[in-house]
Each structure stands twice: as C-alpha cells, then as structure tokens.
Design a protein around this nucleic acid. Sequence first.
DNA 1: CGTCCAGGTCTAC
DNA 2: GGTAGACCTGGACGC
Length: 306
Amino acid sequence: MEPPEPGTWSPLGELELRGAGGEPVDLRRCLASHGVAMLPPNQIDEQGLRLTTTLALGEGRARTVSLIGGAGRAELWLAGGPLGEDEAGRLRSGVRHMLALDQDLSAFYRLAARDPQLSWCCAGAGRMLRSASVFEDVVKTICTTNCSWSATVRMVSALVGELGAPDGLGRHAFPEAEGLAGAGEDFYRGVARAGYRGAYLRAISRAVVAGELDLEGLADPSLDDDGVRDRLLALPGVGPYAAAHIMQTSLGRCRHPVLDSWTRPTYARLCGHRATDRGILRRFRRYRDFQGLAFWLFLTRDWVEE
DNA sequence: CGTCCAGGTCTAC
DNA sequence: GGTAGACCTGGACGC
C-alpha cells in the first residue's frame, strides 16, 4: 500500500467492503449518501472515494485516519505517530461503525431488484454514512434545521474547531458531550451563532453528561421504531424531520420517508408531476422496513455518476 | 433597507 | 389533535 500523500501516514489495515449479509458496498455512494456526512470532522475528496476524519480517543486526545476506497475493499491509514494496538483497533472499529458495515441491506436489494426505477441500487447503494456516535448525529441534525447549509457548516465547524479534541496535526474530533455542555452561552451565541439552537444543544449535552440521557442506547436493535422515535421527539430541538433523519442515517431505521422542504419538491420534479405525501408513501409502501431508504435513493440517484 | 426563507420546532390556543 | 406565530441567523432577493 502507498501512503495517501507525503507525510507521516502509517497503515491501519484493510476493510472488506461488504455488508452483514454479504451484499456489496459502494463506498462512493456511502460517502455521498447525505449532506451531514460531509460536515466536519469529516472530509471527502473530490473523487468521493476517500474519507478523512478525526476520531476522539478519550482524555482529550484524538487521531486522524483516512479511508481510501478500492474495488470491494478499502485501505485505512493513520496520520501522525504510531499508536498502540488497542487504540488502533478502536479507530478501525470506529470507521467500520461509520460505514455501517454491520447493517444488512440484502433484504432491501431483493425488493429493489424488482423495481426498474431502483434496481441500480443493488450494486451497493443505500448505506448511510454515520457519525462516530449517535450524539454527534443528533447535534449535527439539529444544526441543519431551519437554516441555510452555510449556517449548518458554520455551527458544526465551530463546535469541532473550538471544542473538539485536537489530533496534534491541526485537526479536531467532534466534541464529547462534556465539551458541548461546558461551553457557555457566549460561545453558542457569539462563536457558533447557533441562535435558539444553542439552548437545545446545551440541554441535550448536559443530560448526557448527567447520565439522564442515553443516546447511544438508541442503537439497540431490540427497541422498536416507535419507541426510538418517541425518545428522539422528546429531545429539545428534535421534531418529526430531525427524528426521521437521525433514524435513517445514524440508526439504520429507514422505514419512514423523510418528508421535508427539499424531498417533497425533488420527488415531484423527478416524477414530472405533483405528488402528495400519501402518494409518496403509497409508491414506496412495498419496501416495508426500507421505505424511507428507497425514497431517499430515488431522490439522490444523480448525486453520484453511474 | 425590508421581506422572505432555508432539508423545522416549540408554545399556545 | 390540529394549526398559527415566534424564533436565531444570514444570504438572496425586490423595492
């Protein structure tokens, strides 16, 4: 393996790009699966086949890794000096988690194969890039609500750059809940310019730190969708859109389509006619537990060249 | 310069 | 339970 570029990179091994059911994984599609995937600390290269991100290792430390896609597999590289095997393993499993390689999409592909408009997905589309934690995805999703994309980038960049653990090479991980809970109102107002969202982010972070809120527990597969949705809706700043988005991206629960100010008109444009919410739900009903995923892929097919 | 709105959400009827 | 209004912010528009 060749290092990605001059500098101190060392190999962290290879990942086989296969899902839990043995289905193929299209890395380019995964890295371009949704907008939140492109926010800091993630960085995706121009060709869309390389993900560089910085992961927290606890105690204020962090390391940057780079994943470079090949055919059916990907190389993982570590930036900076050597690392103990224990922590190297944590970085590897962190990246596997982000790629959602533990998810089984083979049942979705069996359904998509019978749908001429979505059969292209069977080559490996549909895996949503996750953040390193549910907490991170919740915070980022709240930062997408009711504002322009540039505002989302500004808010998340401030959280990462000002509160995240440094890797020693100028990059930062996404901050732990302690970091967000410890930042003052002046930070949220004056630096992040998060507006009314600042109070939501502080409240959620404080509840996590206090042990009153277990966001990572939402990944428990034994919970049912409605239970997860109710717990997300109970969070300040999380409404129907945010809950559905978090479930679809971070939790692999993609039964319910995300209907919002972008998806509705985009669907109508692609269909060439007006569409009601009921009509959308009817079109994708056949996808059972994957209705939201099928809808999302229908909308984002042209995000990646085929 | 005022108004609108961007991948909404909360509160008060 | 369903529906107005307010809400931080800042970029895009019309006047």
